[in-house]
Computed example of a mutant assay.
Amino acid sequence: MQIEKTMKKVTIKDVAKDAEVSVAAVSKVIRSAYGVSPSLKEKVEKSIKKLGYRPNTSARGMRGRTFTVGVLIVNLGNAYLPKLLEKINATLSISGYKMLIGLGQSELSIESSLIESMMDSNVDGLILIAPRLSDSALEKYAKQIPMAVVGHIENTATSFDTINGDDFLGAELATQALVETGIKNIKMISQPLREFNKVDLNQERERGFLHTLTKANHNDVAEDRIFRVSNNEDELKKELALFLDEQTLPCAIFCWSDIHAIPLLDECIKRQLTPQKDVFIIGYDNTPLASYAMVNLSSIDQQAEQQGELAANALLERIKGRNTAKHLLVEPSLISRKSH
């Protein structure tokens, strides 16, 4: 009986062994993944040709784009996010892309896990919004996938794009408006400092705040002008109450975010303090709630929609092949609201 000899099918492992690279590296070359060096591509393609390797149908399907983009947000508590996300989604949709959202919950391990899961799902790129990750961690991921970052001021980054409001200018606008009230007791409410990151948005806003006071000849400018509060909602209320207990009226207060300004305004009203007489408050983000008649809060508008459009377009450019970094600043404006 004649036995037919069959040729053993060449696998991706065979290609990896011949090219002396990992299976993951071969997979990246096959699907034209972002960040593959010309030398790696040449080496793998040489082995593929030599061995006559033919990717299976699913592997071939991985070559093209998935037309999905992963978007990572820290939490859902900031009312600034909806306009930003809506504009990102609308801009991506024009180019046929869909947006997948991951919620980092302000935890570094969760952020890292979500980014890696999105990459494993073969999204074509990532947009990170106010990530808590360190500069080195962002750089590591950006070398593997096209990435744009909103709310992270690092204009020296070379592997990813950044899109931010001009937070220094926004703080200047808010503080100058408070200086013009003639009140000497001007304070800022800010967040806890993050040890490993020197370019957080809150630090830019603090610099703008202190710089403006110095220009206005407030000679007692010092760090005790800045009152730091917790991000925990229950703790925040207690801390804001303590802050008001210590103030000499009238006082003028620049809040890092409307998230802080609105609860502070609420506490003032409970104490029967008159807005824009006993207390002058300016927030940041110009969230929808700030414009409500019962709130009527002056706030810095950092143009969320413009930032969202710029972030989406920057990422699309990177997906198409641009590899030089862009660092974009959007000019904010003060939305002044007078009390009735």
Rank of each mutant, 00 (worst) to 15 (best):
K8M: 14
K9A: 04
D14W: 00
A16C: 07
A16M: 08
K17R: 02
V21S: 01
V21K: 00
A24G: 09
A24Y: 12
A25V: 15
I30A: 07
R31I: 00
A33C: 08
V36P: 04
P38Q: 11
K41N: 12
K41M: 08
V44H: 03
K49W: 03
K50L: 15
G52L: 10
R54F: 04
T57P: 07
M62H: 11
F67A: 07
V69W: 02
G70T: 03
I73V: 15
I73Q: 09
E86Q: 12
K87D: 02
T91G: 12
K98Q: 15
I101V: 13
I101E: 12
S106N: 13
L108A: 09
S112V: 15
S113L: 00
I115T: 09
S121M: 12
I127T: 01
I129T: 03
L133Y: 01
K140Y: 10
K140Q: 08
K140N: 08
Y141V: 02
V149H: 07
T156D: 14
F160T: 04
T162A: 12
G165E: 00
D167M: 10
D167I: 00
L169C: 09
G170L: 03
E180D: 15
G182H: 00
I183L: 06
L193M: 06
D200K: 13
K215P: 09
K215C: 06
A216F: 02
V221Q: 04
V221E: 01
D224Y: 13
F227C: 11
K237T: 05
K237F: 06
K238N: 15
L240I: 10
A241Y: 14
F243N: 04
L244S: 04
E246Y: 00
A252N: 03
I259N: 10
I262C: 04
P263L: 05
P263R: 11
L264Y: 00
R271C: 10
Q272A: 13
Q276H: 13
Q276E: 14
K277N: 12
K277A: 15
V279G: 00
I281N: 03
I282A: 01
I282C: 05
D285R: 09
P288S: 08
L289F: 14
M294S: 15
S298A: 06
S298P: 05
D301Y: 09
Q302G: 01
A304S: 10
E309H: 09
L310S: 06
N313E: 13
A314R: 11
L316H: 10
A325M: 02
V330D: 06
E331K: 15
P332N: 02
